[in-house]
């Protein structure tokens, strides 16, 4: 009798695994290390200093871009999560209807359509609105981000709703709770870890977006990622490393929180 198949005992497994991890994490580690470089190069180590963090902190453009990124991410996360909750309720708490698969595909459209297509489409669409209304504010970015964040918020919320015991909602209805009260008193209290997880995921995705933002933004509407992209075109200093490291830290924190929330039972 041979032993049960175990992928970790295959030849070369260790080598491949180590290569993958190195390729994935070595660049990030280098990025973090060089953010503390005292010199102006992102490749030659000259000693430890906090100077690029200070420089980024004091850079007006960085400050502005950060505030703008946060505003957009907060709005986009709030709007997309609200839509996602409604969409998830509609796709899990109604009777099966014809075209349910199509609705599901439409909600997840941003995951499947290439980002560049969405970006160009939004650019053209918003250009028409801009001409018609003359409005050039942040709302375009917020709307665009909300749209592509919906599937990211939707998936964890839907997963949670599907995992919930339907008989609880039936028991509440049996005890004279109207559909709205059932949602408020029974569904929502159990759904909140899913909602928070969805909102956080949407927040991080919005914070991180380059392609769609680059296309949709008006002049002077740089977010942190598009500002960094702009900087790279000119002169590259470890300031970019410092900003990236902070963003990395925020993302890691959110991902950990997301995992923890996903584990909350009941």
């Amino acid at each position: 009798m041979s032993k049960a198949f175990n992928v970790s005992r295959q030849n070369g497994f260790t080598t491949i695994a180590i290569t993958c991890f190195v390729l994935l994490y070595l660049p990030i580690i280098l990025l973090v290390v060089y953010s503390f470089n005292s010199g102006t190069s992102v490749a030659i180590w000259e000693g430890f200093s906090w100077r690029w963090y200070q420089s980024a902190w004091q850079n007006d453009q960085v400050q502005e871009a950060t505030v703008r990124s946060l505003i957009i991410a907060l709005w986009a996360s709030a709007i997309s999560t609200t839509c996602a909750v409604l969409a998830a309720l509609a796709t899990t708490r109604t009777r099966k209807f014809k075209g349910q698969a199509a609705v599901f595909a439409m909600i997840n459209q941003p995951l499947m359509v290439p980002e560049i297509v969405t970006a160009v489409a939004l650019l053209i669409f918003f250009a028409m609105i801009k001409v018609a209304t003359g409005y050039t504010g942040l709302a375009y970015l917020i709307v665009a981000h909300s749209a592509f964040c919906i599937p990211f918020a939707y998936l964890p919320i839907r997963a949670r709703l599907q995992g919930m015991d339907l008989s609880l909602e039936q028991a509440a209805a049996d005890l004279y709770a109207t559909p709205f009260k059932v949602f408020r008193r029974i569904t929502l209290p159990q759904l909140w870890p899913g909602i928070l997880a969805g909102a956080m995921l949407a927040f991080v995705i919005s914070l991180d977006d380059v392609v769609i933002t680059e296309f949709v933004k008006s002049a002077g509407q740089d977010t942190l990622p598009t500002y960094m992209l702009g900087q790279l075109r000119r002169v590259v200093t470890p300031e970019v490393n410092a900003i990236s490291t902070v963003l990395f830290g925020i993302s890691v924190t959110f991902v950990i929180a997301f995992t923890v929330l996903g584990k909350i039972k009941n």
């Binding site: 015991d165 008989s167 609880l168 049996d174 209290p189 009941n266």
Partner: peptide, 20 residues
């Protein structure tokens, strides 16, 4: 009548107690 308007109550086979 929808369930919440029916003057009957149920003891469920799976209890269905509200966990929160």
């Amino acid at each position: 009548l929808p369930p919440y308007k029916r003057p009957v109550n149920t003891v469920f086979q799976s209890y269905a107690l509200f966990p929160h």
